[in-house]
């Protein structure tokens, strides 16, 4: 089996658009919305989720034939929880301020439905390497939505990107003010709604039947 056969490439590329975990599978919404006021925590969160999905997929897939079906949820939760503890300790050691901003949402990666969903739907029935790729793909699909939402919210909400002021002072002098609504948590929901709207008007097959 080659490392990047076309089948594996599909596993990586599909979650970016047609099977996007956030906008199509509707998984992992909680953290997708809560950490997106600024771009930097969104990027850190996206990376953490990529790492956790990829490696817990890999581990569970390697163990899949020896897990008794009745207690599989608990086994999965333990594996995911250990991955999240690792990520959490790393974040605290290297990017303490971002880790403070993310607060409980790092812990909530454990119950992030993307991870449980992929474990159940993919890793339990596939070999370790494709599972790993599937984890990376879904993590990236999640991270992309996070970054788009965070980019829009930070740009219009505080006139900055990654903390650097991009809206020039002359705009403010001319009467431009930051849109305070964008900082509010509810705007994230509306933005994701609009992203879904745009995505589905380009991909007609995703439109829901009544």
């Amino acid at each position: 089996m080659s490392i990047f056969s076309s089948k594996n490439f599909k596993l990586l590329a599909n979650p970016l658009n047609l099977e996007n975990p956030v906008t199509v599978q509707i998984l992992g919404i909680c953290s997708a919305l809560a950490v997106t006021t600024k771009l930097k925590p969104a990027i850190v969160m996206g990376l953490s989720v990529i790492v956790v999905t990829a490696f817990s997929n890999l581990v569970i897939s390697a163990m899949r034939n020896s897990i008794p079906p009745r207690i599989r949820i608990i086994v999965q939760l333990v594996v995911v929880a250990s991955m999240v503890i690792l990520v959490d300790q790393l974040l605290r050691a290297f990017v303490y301020d971002v880790s403070k901003q993310l607060s409980v949402y790092v812990g909530l990666i454990i119950t992030n439905c993307i991870i449980m969903g992929r474990l159940e739907a993919f890793a339990m029935g596939n070999k370790p390497w494709p599972s790993f790729i599937d984890g990376v793909g879904n993590g990236i699909g999640y991270a992309i939505i996070l970054m788009v939402v965070a980019f829009i919210r930070e740009l219009f909400g505080s006139g900055a990107i990654l903390g650097f002021q991009v809206v020039p002072q002359s705009f403010y002098d001319a009467g431009y003010i930051n849109n305070g609504m964008m900082i509010m948590p509810t705007m994230a929901l509306v933005l994701v709604g609009v992203i879904i709207w745009i995505q589905r008007s380009f991909n007609k097959e995703l439109i829901e039947k009544d």
């Binding site: 509707i26 509010m184 948590p185 509810t186 705007m187 994230a188 929901l189 509306v190 994701v192 709604g193 609009v194 879904i196 709207w197 745009i198 995505q199 589905r200 008007s201 995703l206 439109i207 829901e208 009544d210």
Partner: peptide, 28 residues
């Protein structure tokens, strides 16, 4: 909502997001 005409791409989950957002504004 089932009795309303919603733009097709927004049907289902899209409009639910926006409604939740509006309810959030009310809760503010």
């Amino acid at each position: 909502l089932r009795y309303n005409k919603i733009p097709a791409p927004l049907r289902g989950i899209g409009i639910t997001f926006i409604i939740t957002g509006l309810m959030g504004i009310a809760f503010m």
